[in-house]
Amino acid sequence: MRPPALNVGTKVALAVAAAAVCVAGSTGVLVHRITAADQLATARSGLDQQLLSAADDNGVGRRSQARIDPPDLPAPVARAVRDDVRVTYLQDTGERRVLWAATRVSDRKVLALSRPYTPEEQSLASLDRTLLATSAAATVVVSLTGLLLGLRMGRRAVAAARTAESIAEGDLDARVPPKGRDEIARLAASVNTMADALGARLEAERRVTADIAHELRTPVAGMSTAVGLLPPGRASELVAGSVQKLRGLVEDVLEVARMDAQVAAVDTEEREVSAMARRAIASLDEVELQVVADAVVTTDPRRVERILTNLATNALRHGAPPVRIQIDGPIIRVRDHGPGYPADLLAVLHTSGPQRFRTGSLTGGTGLGLTIATGQARLLGARLTFRNHAEGGAEAELEL
């Protein structure tokens, strides 16, 4: 199981916290080392001055804290003073640390001073505790600031993403409120510009669709009248069939234009789902109806029947019989036994929905059947989904 992905806000907060920890840690280590070196240098200088005073006292026979040839003199100090130099040395015995200062007072005698290094160690430990507390407080403050900044950036990015998703789902009035002048503000402006351009293109497409349909309606009606005046025969039947298909296409385009313009009215009433399905497939052969469980729903019967007719017709045209309509309460499934939806068409159906004048089939067609079915379902507040059945064939599911 993959771990959940971190959002932008969390990533920014973690990055700021990590940077704060690194800066605080580096600063603390640097201050510790500088202070320790300064303390040691000060202690060495002080003990060396005491050694010089003790040497003067020893020269005139006065008593001092210095010792002649102490038995616990560290070996490194004993070796170093052979060159007639004064030596300061910090000895670590494991249990404690001792600071030594030594010098030669004769060919064979060594004068030495020593004292515990405990005060410096305690002072350094106190400094470390202060640095730790200060670094922790600074890290918390900076991390909280980074968290607030990250959450703000994350909210703005999520708002832009949700607006883009709303636009993809058809809400072309969705916009991202412009805030700031950073990259996220630029992203928001780009999303708004995209929505404006997409809305303009779709509006132009809708106007062209409606204008073409209205312009074709009159000549098609004239052709239908003229066909009735032709003498009976095979030629007139072919012409009549073609005119009828053209008339159906014009009506489909007009219906799409009405749905695009959002002027379609929905007249609801209570109907049995099985009754609407029977009326929808009354004129279609090779369509089976299976009622698992019937239900009474409040909907627009004419639009539900149009959806089912389009789905069944599409299944017969692009799939393979038998086509089965299964009713399971308010859920209606339309399945054929053909090769199923092509992968590219299924991907489009799952994202932006059916595209008009595109079928994804080798047999041709106008591609308006699924577009009208989806538009009608949207008007009814129903859910229409498309998939390939596990046992083969395409399946569309309408949930009223």
Rank of each mutant, 00 (worst) to 15 (best):
P3G: 04
A5W: 15
V12G: 03
V16I: 10
A17Y: 08
A17W: 03
A24V: 12
T27I: 02
R33C: 07
A37V: 01
D38Q: 15
R44S: 08
D48K: 12
D48Q: 13
Q50V: 05
A55R: 09
G59A: 11
V60G: 00
P70K: 05
L73W: 09
D83F: 06
Y89C: 08
D92M: 02
T93H: 12
T93E: 10
R97M: 10
V105H: 03
V105M: 04
S106I: 02
Y117P: 00
Q122D: 14
S123F: 06
A125Q: 10
S126Q: 08
D128F: 00
D128N: 13
T130P: 05
L131R: 11
T139M: 11
L144F: 14
L147W: 15
L151I: 13
R155D: 14
V158Q: 15
A159H: 11
A160G: 09
A160V: 12
V176T: 11
V176Y: 06
P177Q: 14
G180T: 11
R181Q: 12
R181E: 15
T193R: 13
M194I: 05
D196R: 13
D196N: 08
L198Q: 13
R206S: 13
A210S: 14
H214M: 07
R217A: 15
M223S: 10
P232A: 14
R234H: 01
E237Y: 00
E237F: 00
A240N: 02
Q244E: 14
L246H: 02
G248E: 15
V250H: 07
V250M: 02
V253D: 03
M259K: 00
A261S: 11
Q262M: 00
A265C: 01
V266E: 07
T268D: 14
R279A: 12
E288L: 11
E288T: 12
A295F: 04
V296Y: 08
P301R: 12
N310Q: 15
N314I: 00
H318F: 06
G319W: 03
R324G: 03
Q326I: 02
Q326W: 03
R335M: 06
H337R: 15
P339D: 10
A343H: 05
Q355G: 02
G360I: 07
L362H: 11
T366F: 08
G367F: 04
G367S: 04
L368S: 01
L370G: 01
L370E: 07
L370S: 03
I372K: 06
A373V: 03
A377H: 03
A377W: 03
A377L: 05
R378L: 05
L380Q: 15
N388K: 08
H389W: 01
A390D: 13
E391N: 10
L398T: 06
L398V: 08
